[in-house]
Design a protein around this nucleic acid. Structure first.
Lengths: 211, 211
DNA sequence: CATCTAATCGGACCCCGGTCCGCTTAGTAG
DNA sequence: CTACTAAGCGGACCGGGGTCCGATTAGATG
């Protein structure tokens, strides 16, 4: 504790992977592959953490050391799709990306999220189960994005609250429930979302303002 | 199985309590009391089903036989408050009850629900955890109520979808998260809800129509 | 009161997510 | 190549929700 080795000072802690030991990195990959495969084969709901550990040829302790929790692992499995979506609404082409009016971007965001839900509902349900829902980094990004768009659409609204309220209607649980129990399919939910957004923001035809 | 006793035919199955054996009814009461007490003492999150069974002087099997699940038990503990609220918006005085314009009733509904959340957040969190959220009978009542009000406010909207979307923003999880992590207090959430509703329904000053 | 039966009881048991800690090993320094 | 150390490993373990089934008993019948 008292003597700090020079090497520890030189490590700039670039990224988690950078200072990960080789076997650790290998195990992370093995676990990710096993999880992805099992999720695809049986459905995420029917795959326990023990299953994944066994399939990856790894102890349960290792699994939790690498990923911390079931939700975090599920999130990691989805990171590619998730990043692609975020890329889309942050730097992509309109109407999802910058350039379109806020209302249009909001509608496109919801449709994109609903597509994501439709493609990965099961794994997302695992990723956003319980307390993980609000503390995940995607949620924070979504929240910020919606808050900015809402403020842009109407500076007088309580954008912080409305962003959370809107996000609530794009939750996995609701999506699955609406689809399975209430038989509202993807198209209907997209239309409903669009209606919701259009009613929320006045949607003035030419309100473009710089700054 | 083949011989049906006359007595079984005479039982009209009036209500669950009616055909419940005396000891069963007694145990149900004991369990409810113990649960209520423990929830109040320690907070629902720190009370396990074993704790409740022990405190009630009853086996775990009995507990689950009577209530089926943790969420159902929590719901039962709250049934009084829940009924009072439902009574309020079904048969109570305006603006919560019938008589006020739909928009006003919607706002009052959300405020009432938020009050309920504020009073019983912990137990409600247990009651609406996981899959129980959408399958509970209160949810169905809320859904119907909102659907009718939305249709009344604007017959052209997709009331079914909008009702679910609105209800999502009155979920316990979101309420707790907004209050604790985002520091949006009860008043702010009420104001936000009112804003949300007013933007959603045109709120024409005199749109009262019979039928 | 004795008998009978089906509802009830209760705790041992299961599965699951998550934690802990003593053993192993990668990677480095000499 | 050897020695050293901290990171990594893995499986025993824990508490919690929920299930099962042999033992018990309420309460009706005669």
């Amino acid at each position: 504790m008292e003597t700090i080795t020079p090497s520890s000072l030189e490590l700039p802690q670039l990224a988690p992977e950078a200072l990960e030991r080789a076997d650790a990195a290998r195990n992370r990959q093995r676990i990710l592959c096993a999880a992805q495969r099992l999720f695809a084969e049986r459905g995420a709901a029917c795959v326990s953490m023990d299953d994944i550990a066994d399939a990856a040829g790894v102890g349960k302790g290792t699994l939790f050391r690498r990923f911390g929790s079931r939700s975090a692992l599920a999130l990691a499995v989805l990171s590619e799709s998730e990043s692609a979506f975020q890329e889309g609404f942050i730097r992509g082409a309109p109407p999802l990306g910058p350039g379109a009016p806020a209302a249009e971007r909001l509608i496109a965001f919801g449709e994109g999220r609903l597509d994501l839900l439709a493609r990965h509902a099961e794994v997302l349900a695992a990723a956003e189960a319980g307390p993980a829902r609000f503390s995940s980094s995607p949620y924070e990004v979504y929240r910020l994005h919606l808050t900015l768009l809402l403020r842009e659409a109407d500076p007088d609204c309580d954008a912080e609250y409305l962003a959370e309220a809107l996000l609530a209607s794009l939750g996995v649980d609701l999506f699955l429930y609406l689809g399975l129990a209430r038989e509202l399919d993807l198209a209907r939910q997209k239309a409903g979302w669009a209606e919701l957004v259009r009613r929320l923001v006045p949607c003035p035809p030419s309100n473009a303002q710089s700054t």
